[in-house]
Design a protein around this nucleic acid. Structure first.
Lengths: 208, 208
DNA sequence: GGCATCAAAATTGGCGCCAATCCAGAAGGA
DNA sequence: TCCTTCTGGATTGGCGCCAATTTTGATGCC
């Protein structure tokens, strides 16, 4: 919720998305256009357009003549999104396992370590950044860009704040371990085992 | 491109989507706001909102101060979308194979026959309707609604007109045969064979 | 005859105003 | 004291106007 230079629709979508994603805007919060106008230093029209786009993405609910509020995420839907993500990640794994070179694996190693460190001594924001960086690097050589875009889109559909809520430190550490296992299995070109870990990584209750 | 009762944003999106999907608006066509305003009997604001939403869906391209035009779809991207669709359809098959009862299979049979008939003596529109009906019926008992929504979303990402272009009658008939094979394999509860057919059905150059 | 230049028309795109609607709090009655 | 009704304030949401920019068509020059 920072004020900044005048923001256009696309920026607004990203800013609001981030605020929802990290839980700065909790489920049920009312998003008053006037407040947002001031908070983000944007015009009414841009605000409205951004909100409509978030409604389309089902992160925000719109009630006629009442306003916009952050959608609440029932566990069933979260599970469905994660199952879908798992299916696609497993498919993507097959597409990248032979395309990840040593340089890419080294970068992944850095991000995996950064994630593990952020778990112990960083903010949720830091964790998210490191985690996204890890998966971005892993999916970079995937020839199917549509699939990759879709995966990140699915990631954005469920706020990290919602997932992390019922997440023990133990589960998070297991997620960190998955990262290292993934690197090892890619290096060994062991697709079945890799896919098994990818699936588990995406389906665990608090999947990073 | 029919004129009708005043249309709101959501209707406009659907109408434009259909027009693009069926090829009434070909790739590269300019979508002038004034024309659309008149053609669909809508306000400028609704038109613009609908167009922006189509840009988001990547069916339409926007050039600043030039206007909106129908996106052209390069074969590589089409292939990627279809590959992604195939992955999800295969996953969905596992979720519905034990949930499709005799009534559902009978309905699917009707739609499969309708599709086969439309191939021989119907319009592209008829074919699309029958095909969508077949797949809708098949996915109806899928407990993962997010996955189903995503599948239909992917379907909308590549206009039928683009796919059908490089589609021989032979390929289309093979698609019709797939429908009957799918029904038979669901009835036999033969998941591996079903998934094989689903994959082929989605990947064939002119996948219905 | 072809090409560059220029002006007029058309189109896009943004901003502000104002009506319609809803919520909160005060006033009145049981 | 609690419930109902009413009024004032605030918010949403739609419509229209106008500036900025591009395109088209005409004109003049090479």
């Amino acid at each position: 919720m920072q004020a900044a230079a005048p923001a256009r629709t696309r920026d607004l979508v990203r800013l609001l998305e981030t605020d929802i994603h990290l839980g700065r805007l909790g489920a049920g919060s009312w998003l008053r256009q006037i407040d947002l106008e001031a908070a983000y230093n944007a015009t009414r029209l841009d605000i409205r357009q951004a909100l409509d786009r978030l409604v389309e993405k089902r992160l925000v609910r719109h009630i006629a003549r009442r306003g916009y509020q952050v959608e609440d995420f029932d566990p069933a839907r979260v599970a469905q999104v994660m199952e879908t993500r798992a299916v696609l990640e497993v498919a993507a794994a097959a597409l990248v396992i032979d395309r990840l070179d040593d340089a890419a694996l080294a970068t992944m190693q850095l991000h995996a370590e950064a994630f593990a460190r952020a778990l112990e001594a960083g903010t949720v924001e830091d964790q998210e950044a490191a985690n996204i960086a890890f998966h971005t690097t892993m999916l970079a050589p995937c020839p199917n860009r549509e699939m990759v875009d879709l995966l990140f889109d699915l990631r954005a559909r469920v706020p990290a704040a919602v997932i992390r809520r019922r997440n023990t430190m133990d589960l998070l550490r297991r997620g960190a371990d998955h990262h290292f296992a993934i690197i090892r299995l890619v290096r060994a070109r062991d697709l079945p085992a890799l896919q098994q870990v990818m699936r588990e990584h995406n389906l665990s209750p608090g999947a990073p």
